[in-house]
Design a protein around this nucleic acid. Structure first.
Lengths: 212, 212
DNA sequence: GGCAAGGGTGAGCGAGCGCTTAGCGCGCCT
DNA sequence: AGGCGCGCTAAGCGCTCGCTCACCCTTGCC
């Protein structure tokens, strides 16, 4: 009911904006490889091979291997920010909006675990300029969640002694899903999203959601 | 008051058990390098250089670069497990023991951020055999926290609908400290430990600790 | 049908990787 | 005092890396 971000097939179709088809296939292959083995351990030959191309084809569409990571990271962060903004600026009480934000953010990390891993864990592999841009996007992500929590404190729904610290913890909890979530594990992304929304509402001292 | 794991100098003196002095210096250099740049991006020349030795010196004390990572990971996990066991098997209510476990576990991740990063994020860089051993240690870590939560549920102190899921979330929250904690940031490890202990008690529905 | 344009390939460059080997110098045992 | 062995280094092996270059094959326009 609360996710405006889905498209038809469950996983949405990400990377639709990457325009030459071959460039998108290469980028998708890079996401897979970076998530599996890490940026530095991934070779350009591996990326090109996954995309069914020769190693040289990569350099027609991207100037360097790092440009691939930069593109992935920027698009991924914009998507994450978009998800949080949609929840944050929706209607409803702060409690409802926080639950919505957490559950949809968590679902995104669980479903697109490969993408999320690259986005969240390969920041340090970027050069200084690219990193600075991404750090700016992260600050906006933080501000979005902090805004909801501040709303809840103002309205008396939440009891939060340390708003910046709690914001940090909420985001940290969601982001770490990308590290441990296992597609073959016992939980679906939806179940984790619901569990985490409940836990976060407890963290901010909101009335229990009555879930489960 | 609750930390039995400290020694003199704040950071404890880890790696005391690594016996030839040169081997310890190499291992310490490897921890630094792995934490900064990641395992795959670290060269054996870099490790040896940080330890003030020639590249070949590394192979007198360690068979391969991976053996260094394995040793770091095993010692680190044993230390983390030790911290949790000390808190878990201490005296006091489940509430007190959970707060103690979380705050000391978080302090370890914040203080020894370099070590913790390697321990928590470079698991996949190990070969199958070494990884299996480490995964076994992680299961023990999980069991220790789950045990405290189960105690609290049994005694009526906690209200936890999903014990395994909540255990996962608590550990995830603590571990992710190693990703974001910044030594030059506004929070001390002690402050983060106290904040997180409070947040976790809220997550399990324990009465508020009255901290701050 | 000829031809420019551009996406793609095979081969390979210089560099840096993990790791090995031959040999050196210093401390310890007698 | 002599010699042995351990800890270490300089040099370098074979390999793979990110990336480049000369060339080809297809496509669309006249």
């Amino acid at each position: 009911m609360s996710t405006a971000e889905e498209t038809a097939g469950g996983e949405a179709q990400p990377w639709g904006e990457v325009t030459p088809d071959a460039a998108r296939r290469l980028l998708l292959a890079a996401v897979e490889a970076f998530a599996e083995r890490g940026y530095h351990a991934t070779t350009t030959r591996d990326i090109a091979g996954r995309a069914g191309m020769s190693p040289a084809a990569l350099y027609i569409h991207y100037k360097t291997k790092e440009e691939l990571l930069h593109r992935i990271s920027r698009i991924g962060h914009e998507k994450a920010l978009d998800i949080l903004r949609t929840a944050s600026r929706g209607e409803g009480t702060a409690t409802e909006r926080l639950a919505d934000a957490v559950s949809s953010f968590v679902r995104w990390h669980a479903r697109g675990r490969t993408t999320a891993r690259v986005v969240q864990y390969e920041l340090d592999s970027l050069g200084p300029g690219a990193r600075a841009e991404i750090v700016g996007l992260r600050r906006q992500v933080d501000a979005e969640v902090r805004g909801i929590i501040e709303d809840g404190v103002r309205s008396g729904e939440f009891d939060v002694p340390d708003v910046p610290g709690t914001t940090l913890a909420v985001l940290s909890l969601c982001i770490d899903v990308a590290r441990w979530f296992n597609v073959d594990g016992p939980r679906t992304p939806e179940q984790v999203g619901a569990l985490y929304a409940d836990l976060v509402l407890r963290m901010v001292g909101a009335g229990n959601t009555g879930s489960v």
